[in-house]
Design a protein around this nucleic acid. Structure first.
Lengths: 137, 137
DNA sequence: GAAATCCCAACCGCGTGAGTAGGGATTATC
DNA sequence: GATAATCCCTACTCACGCGGTTGGGATTTC
């Protein structure tokens, strides 16, 4: 029951992009260096975020990555779901064919309630929130 | 970011014990059979729960496992913590000062808030709650 | 054209989670 | 006291995913 490093790195990178001044895209190596993330690893993370439409990349010299929406329109939940998959602690809670005991299984209600709590928190925080939070230090 | 099967199984076993009528302890094989859990696996789970003082075992013929407190005094959080370890999604949130960037790392506040939310939910549900929930079906 | 960048696929080591195997210790019951 | 039922413990296997690397290719700017 841990967040993967991918998600942690990915969120840090997103916050970095959100806080970065100017309109020019940020090269991978710059993000990697200043956040202390192995560059090839971060590359795959950003690829995932791009596929989910959270960042856009421009190729070629003086290219790089940038947010594709403004920071106040990106919830932390978006980033986490993109990298971590659906926010369910237990598979039987989601859509799929649940376990045979689904009826009468009281434990499911526990997991479902936690899923809801987590989603509420994550959906309520935007990248912009995190940036201002970071500046207050 | 998934709950392990250990925890899922463990909680189900605890609910089973809580719902079981009579004072006699429940043999491992009975719990395993009626919850569909591999017996040797469940054995280790119950050993862990015993070490944490959540169940007590009596050996010998007509022995078995029973809750060591009444179901309304056992929170789901107790079970989950016993089997899953501390309820932190990211290690840097705990006392472990591993992350050099701890100061100024805005992401940490996200993880911390989720940890709190999870703990709140898990601490607010008792085994007794789950039993009555299960009976309502 | 050269340099800077993104893009992509394949690979690897290692930990851990899930489950198995097998034998030993204790106790109720007859 | 013998037997059967039960808990107790250690060690093992097996598969998978995570964190990370390698190496090369495709764009674009200058």
């Amino acid at each position: 029951m841990k967040i993967t490093s991918r998600t942690e790195y990915g969120l840090r990178a997103m916050v970095y992009l959100a806080a970065r001044p100017g309109d020019a895209p940020a090269p991978l190596t710059e993000i990697a260096r200043s956040e202390g993330i192995p560059a090839p690893f971060l590359e795959r993370i950003l690829a995932q975020l791009r596929e989910d439409g959270l960042v856009k990349a421009t190729r070629g010299a003086s290219g790089g990555y940038a947010l594709s929406r403004s920071p106040d329109r990106v919830a932390v939940a978006d980033v986490v779901v993109a990298l971590e998959g659906p926010l369910t602690l237990v598979d039987c809670v989601g859509e799929d064919r649940s376990c045979v005991r689904a009826e009468g299984c009281a434990s499911r209600t526990v997991w479902r309630r936690i899923d809801e709590a987590i989603h509420e928190v994550l959906a309520g925080i935007s990248l912009a929130d995190l940036v201002t939070e970071g500046e207050r230090r």
